[in-house]
Every structure is written in C-alpha cells, then in structure tokens.
Design a protein around this nucleic acid. Structure first.
Lengths: 202, 202
DNA sequence: ACGCACAACATACCACGGGTATGGCGGCCG
DNA sequence: CGGCCGCCATACCCGTGGTATGTTGTGCGT
C-alpha cells in the first residue's frame, strides 16, 4: 500500500519538473527564476529545494524527462519489426521529428552541454538518444549493411549533424519542406556508405 | 596623427576582451563575473560598461575575437594555391585543428548559440567559419568536384558534424589519434560524394 | 597659455535571484 | 495518542549584473 504522503510528494515533484521543462524551454536556463518555476507549480521555493539540491539538479530532472520521452518513442521503433536498414531509416525519421520539439531542442541539445557541462551531458546522452544512434549504427555494421567504419566516431559525427539539422529545421519558415530536404540529404548520404547487397554478410 | 587617448582607450578595450576570452573559456559565461574580468584587465566595472553595453556585448566581442583568428587562418588557405579539392581538404584539416582551441570550442561553438541566441549566432557564423565552409562547398559544386547537393543544408550538416567532432577530440585522452580518425572518416565520406574525374566540368 | 568640454574611467548604490536557515503543519508509526 | 519526521513555507543573506553619479586628464579652441 503506497502511502498518501508519498503520492503528494511525487505529485508536487512532477509538477515542478513539468513547470521547469516549460519555462526552461521558453526562456532558457539563465532566463528563468526558481521562484517562477515554483509559482507555476503552485508551491514555494522551499518545496523546490526540498526535492532538488539546486537549479542544476532541477535542470537535470527536466533533461531526463524530455530525453525519456524521445527515448521511449525511438526504442519502440528500433525493437519493432523489419530489416535493420529500414528500421534505421524509420528511426532516423522519428529522431528528426523529435528534434522539432522545442523542449527537446533547447533543453537536451542546446543548453544541456552548457548547463550540465559537456562531460556529464555526454554520459547522460549515452543512455538516451545518442546511445540509440550508436547501437543502431553498430547493428548496421554487424549486419554488414554498411562498410566497417569506426562506430564511435561516426556516430558522434552523425549525431552532431542531426542535431544541427534539427536546429535548422526548427528555425526555418517552411519546416515541412526543409525537413524533407534534410531527410533526403541524409538518406542519400547513408545510401552511399551502404554496401552493395552482394557484399553483405548474412 | 592618432591621439593619445584613442591609444589608451583601444588598449584597455582589447585588454578587457582578452580577459573576457580567457575567463569565459575557463569558467564559462555564467561562471565569470564582470568584476573578475575588469580586475584581470586592471580596471573597474565602470570602464567595462563604458566600452560595452553589458555582459552580452562583452561576450560578443570575445566571440568576434576568437572567430576572427580562425577566420584569418582559414581564408589564407582558401585563397592559396592548389586545386579546389586539395584546398578544401587543407581547410578541413585546419578547421579541425582550430576547433581544438579551448577558447574557440567553448565560446564560439558551445556557449555562442546559448548566450547570443541561436538566431544571432547563426547570423554571426555566416560571416565567419560557417560562411567559409559553405562557400567552400559551393566552390566544389561549381567546379563539378562533387555531386549537385543542396549546399545550404549540406553545409549545415557538415558544420554540425565537424563541431561535434571537435568536441570529441578535445575531450579525448589521445587527441592526436582521435583527430586522425575523425579526419579519416570525414575524408572518406567526402570521397564518396566526389564525382569520378571523368564526369567533372572543367 | 589657459581653461573649457568631453571622453575615459572610478565609486557608490540598487535590485534581483540563487542559496540557506529556521519554523510549522500534518500524516504515519510505535 | 503522542512524539517524530517528512514535506513544505517564510525570512533572510549575499554575490552579481546593471545604473547613476563623481573625478581626472587629454585634446582643442581662442
């Protein structure tokens, strides 16, 4: 039997995280005050400092929240049916779409490395979307779908390119159009590193 | 005849910028106080606010400084002798090296978009290193060295990949080794989008 | 040569926001 | 049912960005 207090506590905590995600997305980390976050969650700073050790910790909670959503969406696709190559392309499309979420964009991609510090951000990303990009690339190499590239490096480059792409799309007038262009360029690029089907390991 | 006062003024201004570059690089934008910057330049905050309208303006001055250096190095290579393809590869190598400068890394690449806002950062980058990447890619397309890719998008993707690469290299144990690996991957990739010599326009 | 005007700074001060210390209220456990 | 502790509110401190005002010396006109 879960206690009543635990429910309340969890509720206010998640309210704080939601509030944080919203405000960090709109005004950025430096631009949002903790009083504001607390107010929007209908509590005071005292409650905030009871649940989180400080502003950074609150940011990391918000980071985990937005990353978690994207992660869930992507893992569903990655574990779904279909050949490795098609799953990878599906994942690619979904990732680009996820990158259009302003919250993911600003919190996870842009301000994450700055606020958390790059080292910590990198560690966190390993368990989230970057980790998926890497393993998915590993799978492709293992299946013999692509040439034997250095996975770690290539994954980093790909992830960086995708992040930039997301930013470009988000800032574009016609997001649909630019999004399609980006997808085309990436897919064309991936096709170039794809092995001719005769050379693939089974 | 240049006035004495103008000399002094310019001197303290550049001292402030140097100090800002140093501190922003070491402790980041949020982590450095203006008093510190002023103290290291052996002036007070009053002088700082005489030369710059605020902390953001100071950051942009630091940004221009570090970007300017990289820009100068790169333009020299781009305008040098040699075939377009070789010049591009030279530029690539130099850019990767430049990205290893902690100041460029943190101020121009990481904190730039966050502090200045992405829109303004993008505009600024158009006149600096990103502009060079773009025009250099344009030249390659114009010379028929590579396939007719969408230049703007591809340049953004490439720039994003290179920035990530720089971060990875900077954070690696053996920078030389990882740097060489990155270079190899990129060059291999570029070779794949290169047209066979017979198809090139002269 | 002399003093005026203004650029180039210094000093003093304010406001705001992150962090902390302390107080109180209400469920849960003995 | 009584003390306890988790959950949260209130009050306060202080570092820091920004501002308003004072001071100095340089260049310029006369």
């Amino acid at each position: 039997m879960r206690s009543r207090r635990a429910d309340y506590s969890e509720s206010t905590r998640s309210a704080l995280v939601d509030s944080a995600v919203e405000l960090f997305t709109k005004r950025g980390y430096a631009g949002t005050s903790l009083d504001e976050v607390a107010k929007r969650a209908r509590v005071t700073k005292g409650a905030l400092y009871h649940h989180f050790s400080g502003k950074q910790a609150l940011f990391e909670a918000a980071f985990d929240a937005v990353e978690g959503e994207v992660f869930d969406r992507l893992t569903k696709i990655m574990q779904g049916p279909g050949a490795p190559w098609e799953r990878a392309l599906d994942g690619l499309r979904t990732f680009i779409k996820s990158c259009l979420d302003p919250a993911y964009q600003r919190i996870a991609i842009h301000e994450g490395p700055v606020v958390m510090g790059w080292e910590r951000w990198r560690e966190a990303e390993d368990h989230f979307s970057f980790g998926l990009v890497r393993t998915s690339l590993e799978d492709l190499v293992a299946a013999g779908e692509v040439d034997d590239v250095p996975v770690e490096i290539t994954a980093r480059l790909l992830f960086g390119a995708l992040s930039s792409a997301a930013t470009v799309i988000a800032g574009a007038e016609d997001q649909k159009k630019v999004g399609a262009e980006v997808e085309a360029v990436i897919i064309q690029l991936l096709n170039r590193i794809r092995r001719p089907s005769g050379d693939r390991a089974t």
